[in-house]
């Protein structure tokens, strides 16, 4: 890490502390600042765990409500983002537990992505229907594979793979050791590997560590 980015972090932390102080003092615009700053990361993390747009927004809202309610308990030495991510992960896993069934694969969500990727007049990303169908099938398979993994394994995997968390950050957020994070990550990867073996066209690795 460079000195400049260290300094950036420092400034960020100081700003964060002053935002916390202002929220504690009842300053609503400070709370809005906090929401604006973190809403995307919180939403995407929640989405990757619960796999549903509406539930992801619900989770993200719950996160901010919890933060607002307990902002006075925020420890000055703690990192705001870690705290937010911890609440996000816990809330998202709670949703999965309450749901008790496999998270849904929302194909409508994918239709919407198509729309945004291809504004009117821009043409389709897929020149022929066959390719489009293949792509949709692959998305379904990936999503299915992701949801064959346990909530904790999936959480670790999506944090590392899609949300740019380092192993040590995941350990902080989940309050587990780095070794445990790595084991969970390995288990997630191993399950995904098995689920997607047909897509890799390669199933020669039959042996396992277990």
């Amino acid at each position: 890490m460079t000195a400049a980015s260290n300094r950036g972090d420092k400034v960020m932390e100081e700003n964060e502390q002053s935002i916390v102080d202002r929220i504690c003092g009842g300053d609503m615009s400070a709370f809005q600042d906090l929401v604006e700053r973190h809403k995307r990361k919180i939403y995407y993390l929640a989405y990757d765990i619960v796999g549903d747009h509406q539930e992801a927004e619900d989770v993200s809202q719950e996160v901010f409500i919890k933060v607002y309610r307990s902002i006075h308990k925020f420890r000055k030495d703690a990192k705001m983002s870690s705290w937010l991510h911890q609440i996000t992960v816990n809330s998202a896993i709670d949703v999965l537990r309450r749901r008790k069934v496999r998270p849904k694969v929302n194909l409508e969500d994918f239709d919407q992505t198509e729309v945004h990727d291809n504004p009117p007049g821009a043409g389709s990303a897929f020149p022929n229907p066959e390719q489009a169908a293949d792509a949709a099938l692959l998305q379904g398979r990936i999503q299915d594979a992701l949801h064959k993994v346990s909530p904790r394994e999936r959480t670790v995997f999506v944090m590392r793979h899609y949300n740019d968390f380092q192993i040590s950050e995941i350990a902080d957020v989940l309050e587990i050791s780095s070794g445990t994070v790595k084991s969970l990550l390995f288990r997630a990867l191993n399950k995904l590997r098995k689920e997607l073996s047909s897509y890799r066209g390669n199933t020669r690795w039959e042996a396992s560590y277990e």
Partner: peptide, 23 residues
Amino acid sequence: SAAYTEMSSTLDIMDKRRRPEPD
């Protein structure tokens, strides 16, 4: 060696996942 190779290619597939983007 097999684990490393296969997991790397699994991650390449997982990279193809498209996350719906709210507008």
